[in-house]
Design a protein around this nucleic acid. Structure first.
Lengths: 267, 267
DNA sequence: TTGCTCCTCACGTCACGTGAGGTGGC
DNA sequence: TTGCTCCTCACGTCACGTGAGGTGGC
């Protein structure tokens, strides 16, 4: 049987343009070409070939690969090496997409958490679990903390598994020479770097979410103090400031939208 | 600080060509362009932007996407929808690559088995396990079997989990009206189609590998009969012919390389 | 003069898809 | 004449990379 290109296209589910392209590439020549009109005609042999090309394309082989395969192979087992190489290539691609997916979902989760926290601005008492942290304790001014986080992120990289936070060891506010510990939750401890690793015991905390720039964080502390007094709570250990949302990975963002959670451990 | 394009390229790990392309696309304009020489100069602001573009490119966003993002977003959380969509897209791609990988590895495994069988051409007695099969039993000539396999593959599709085989119920060779069952191992039974599903009991079998076209399969039967006589074995149930390697998925291949395993159940 | 860094412009990539404009036979 | 099917030719895609050929300042 002979088929016109339109018929053959429907039979093989390859578009007319694709068939013409394969002809041009010398990959799938029609069985006959009318010299006057230039019309292409295909037969059953072309059909088998078209099917094969389709299958190999579906397995992500390039036109160039397929040309080579039809040149060199006359049996499925001759294609063994091509399959092995292609499989490696595909595995590699899956792997790198998987990594991208992971990063995307972690950022999505992060933004969803931020969204939730944005809504719950009540003071509450809650339990926080034990966590492994990497930290750098130093004496200096508040704005030095950023650099310490930089070091921590550099050292812990992909083992970072939570938001950075700092702990304040002074009894009150100090402009200079403050005793600060920059911390980051990690999934694995290491050594040889700038960071110290330790487990932070579980704790009961009074928590408040502060939305807005760091300049106005005093208001949040005020609320916590008032709450603690009213409810007769006594502090246990240094306060933690968790940087839920600050300058982002991509945009510095609007400081009015920054989110900080303050946690005061209590007995 | 201002940087020439070469310096900036090393800082950002974006090639000079890439930087020029981003400029042309209006995605990352230099902070200053020398009108005489056309030389581009970049500053620290360009640096932050370059970093962002790099990150987004690494997450597989297109240049067009990134243009839109920098237009519409001023905060990481504004990118939420872009992340969600990209994540879906990537998941889809992973899924389709996973399917390709699966097909490739199954074909690789198949060819490896064929390779192994090609080497072991001794008669042997072995145990075959229970298997669920889909089958069509019919009376006709040997060459009808192909069509039945066609039906079975069509019906069972991706549930096929082994090589097709046929069972012969006649006592001797019959040219016509032979009583044949075309079978295919499956992982799941169904109903409503042409196939009957049942479990094939485990069995002890005498097995021989026949390499070569089906025309010469008589030789293999001869060897089996002789072996059975010499070892006083008595048959239990119909013989199975397992089509280990016939015309391939891609190439018809050389019939001299076809492989058939004959299994004779024994007591 | 040589070397270095920068520039623009044109072309290639990969597997087709999208027209525009035209033909031949019912 | 209209409709249908076929054709060729040119251009677009996406994010750059690869030259060729040239410039300006040390």
């Amino acid at each position: 049987m002979e088929y016109q290109i339109g018929e053959f296209s429907r039979i093989t589910r390859l578009s007319i343009k694709t068939l013409r392209y394969y002809h041009e590439e010398g990959l799938l020549a029609p069985s006959f070409v009318d010299q006057d009109s230039g019309s292409r005609y295909y037969n059953d042999k072309s059909r088998a070939r078209a099917r094969m090309i389709r299958e190999l394309r579906a397995l992500d082989f390039s036109i160039k690969d397929i040309k080579e395969i039809v040149q060199n192979c006359e049996d499925d087992s001759d294609m063994y090496n091509y399959f092995v190489n292609k499989s490696r290539e595909i595995s590699g691609r899956i792997e790198s997409y998987r990594r991208i997916e992971e990063r995307l979902t972690s950022m999505i989760r992060l933004e969803e958490e931020v969204f939730m926290l944005n809504k719950s601005q009540e003071i509450q008492i809650k339990q926080v679990g034990e966590q492994l942290i990497a930290s750098i304790r130093f004496k200096g001014i508040y704005s030095d903390t950023g650099k310490k986080f930089g070091l921590l992120f550099k050292e812990c990289g992909r083992f970072v598994c939570g938001r950075p936070f700092s702990m304040y060891y002074d009894e009150g506010y100090k402009e200079q020479d403050a005793d600060i510990e920059a911390c980051v939750p990690v999934s694995k401890s290491a050594s040889g770097g700038d960071a110290a690793y330790r487990k932070l015991a579980p704790a009961r905390v009074v928590s408040i979410i502060h939305v807005g720039s760091y300049e106005t964080i005093g208001e949040a502390y005020e609320k916590i103090y008032n709450y603690a007094k009213k409810n007769n709570l006594s502090y246990a250990g240094p306060a933690r400031e968790i940087y839920v949302k600050g300058p982002g990975m991509f945009f510095a963002g609007n400081p009015k939208k920054y989110i900080t959670e303050i946690q005061f451990p209590i007995h």
